[in-house]
Design a protein around this nucleic acid. Sequence first.
DNA 1: GGTATCCAGTACCCATCGGTATCGAGATCG
DNA 2: CGATCTCGATACCGATGGGTACTGGATACC
Lengths: 213, 213
Amino acid sequence: MPEAESRSHPPGPVPRLPRDEVRRRLLAAAGRVFAERGYADSKLEDIARAAGFTKGAVYSNFGSKQELFAAILTERSEAELFGVMAGLDAAADVPAFIEQAARAVARRIIDDTERGRLGLEIATRALHDEETGAVVAPMRRAQRAAAGQAVRAVTEHAGTTPPVDPELAGTILHCLTNGLAMEHLVDAEGVDSDTAERALRAVLGWLTEEADK
Amino acid sequence: MPEAESRSHPPGPVPRLPRDEVRRRLLAAAGRVFAERGYADSKLEDIARAAGFTKGAVYSNFGSKQELFAAILTERSEAELFGVMAGLDAAADVPAFIEQAARAVARRIIDDTERGRLGLEIATRALHDEETGAVVAPMRRAQRAAAGQAVRAVTEHAGTTPPVDPELAGTILHCLTNGLAMEHLVDAEGVDSDTAERALRAVLGWLTEEADK
DNA sequence: GGTATCCAGTACCCATCGGTATCGAGATCG
DNA sequence: CGATCTCGATACCGATGGGTACTGGATACC
């Protein structure tokens, strides 16, 4: 846990944390708390405490609860696209790629629950808050496009003609992934790691194989 | 709109609405408001007003805000499975069935936004409220199973061997549908009626065609 | 070393809203 | 036609928690 400058009181002046570090810790704690309790039930006091500070630190670094949430949103959105690309270009042949991609995505769905929970919270908030929605919509669009590009790259590399055009394939993959993640959150044992992986492998395989017209 | 017993004051005694009707109107209004504003931002006063009553009516018919929400949940969950089944047994041959099913589901995703919004709200709440989760998880499981049964019925009827087993097919369809619905809510123009329909038609077609091993 | 500035801590404010107590009109019963 | 009961309306309570004003110690600057 975040014990830091304990050592009781050797009465030398206690140094101060760099501002960036305070901000980072607040952001990390906010991510955890928002994911755990949801936006409305997350108290700023709790978030500050979880980061080892008080509400004062929050208002010193963020203008409002809303703004803190938005900061998380933009922070995480960047890490997002890289994550998809990471699993992309490591494999050589198509079946190995599919195997690897399915496993990686399934693992992320199952293991990183904070990610999924935050995603749901963000989507929910995007519905009720116009400003959030304006940020989220293009972000999702980029994710769908990235998935589509991945399909295009694989099929071009393999010289196959996929059963649907890559753009639609990206949408299918993206929505399936999100749907699986949501389903896992709601019914963890009903949709476990193996189920998610098999589902992704099957769809991924279908989307990259030669269409039999 | 809900104008009813206007006619100013012809001073005869004003009759009283049947209790069931009060409950129905409250439930309907609550569904609208919860879907529109989300659980936390929905004030009981607003819900009551939207139904043409006051908070007193709410607490006379429901024990708490939580309980009102739960009542909606159970009410809607029943209408759910019938809706899936309805489009099922009308068509004769497989291609026509797929065409029809894809269109019906896509239309529900696009047109009935209250349904989608409530679904998201319910999922979010299921994460944070154990009791809600205990209701939602089996409900989702039943929906996946129903979708799986539909695939099984179609392929058996057509005598084909599907590329994945029906249970997994049900999960894929259910998660894709939910994912598409969520995506439409977040980015309505990015995932429109046509996109959803094409995605569903493609996946439905793949899942019911003969597997080319 | 003295002074100005920064920034998180502390104490407080107050709007909000779920929940409760009570009332009174109208239904129900004898 | 009273007596009683039902149930939604009204008025109110009190906790909660986002936001603000101010404090004081540490840092930066001269």
